[in-house]
C-alpha cells in the first residue's frame, strides 16, 4: 500500500489519537466504560492499522518481537504478582485492600495495576498474532 497517499496521511493522523484513546480507556476504565481488555485491543488496533499501511517491518521496528513476547508474559506476571502481594500482606489472594493503609485506596491501586497487566497482555497478544499472520509463509 505504499502508493496510496491519502491512506498514508490519514493513517499518520489517526494513529496517535487511536493510541491516546486506548490509554484513556485503559486508565479511565474504573470511572467510565472500558478497562484492560478493550484498551489492549484498541491500542493493538492502532499498530495493526499502521502495519497494514506502512508494512509490518516498520511497525516491528517500534515493537520488535522480543518486546511483545515480554509483554505477553509480563502482563500475566503483573496480574498474578499483585494477587500474591495481597497474600503476603496477610489477606486472600487477589484481595487488594491491604495494598494501602486505606482499604478503598488499596482496591483502587490493585484494580489499576491488574488492569495494566490485562492491557499489556491483550495488546501484546493481539499484535503478535497479527504480525505472525502477516509475515507467515510456507517453507
Amino acid at each position: 500500500m505504499k502508493d496510496y497517499l491519502v491512506l498514508r496521511v490519514i493513517t499518520k493522523l489517526l494513529v496517535p489519537f487511536i493510541l491516546l484513546f486506548g490509554l484513556y480507556v485503559q486508565f479511565h476504565g474504573d470511572f467510565g466504560p472500558g478497562g484492560g481488555f478493550q484498551a489492549g485491543v484498541i491500542f493493538a488496533a492502532g499498530f495493526v492499522l499502521y502495519a497494514m499501511v506502512f508494512g509490518v517491518a516498520s511497525a516491528q521496528r517500534i515493537l520488535p518481537e522480543g518486546i511483545l513476547r515480554a509483554g505477553i508474559a509480563g502482563g500475566v506476571l503483573i496480574y498474578a504478582s499483585v494477587g500474591l502481594l495481597g497474600l503476603i500482606l496477610g489477606e486472600n489472594y487477589l484481595n487488594y485492600s491491604p495494598l494501602s493503609h486505606v482499604s478503598k485506596e488499596g482496591q483502587h491501586l490493585g484494580i489499576f495495576l491488574i488492569e495494566l497487566g490485562v492491557g499489556t497482555t491483550v495488546a501484546s497478544v493481539m499484535m503478535t498474532v497479527f504480525f505472525t499472520f502477516a509475515t507467515w509463509r510456507e517453507e
Binding site: 466504560p33 496480574y79 494477587g83 487477589l94 482496591q107 490493585g110 484494580i111 491488574i114
Partner: peptide
Amino acid sequence: HTGIPNVVTAVLASYRGYDTLGEV
C-alpha cells in the same frame, strides 16, 4: 468496598478478580 463508580470494572477486577486472571 472499592469506591469505584463503574460497577462492571469493580466486579470484573476485584470481586471476580480470580476469573479475570483466568481470562488473561
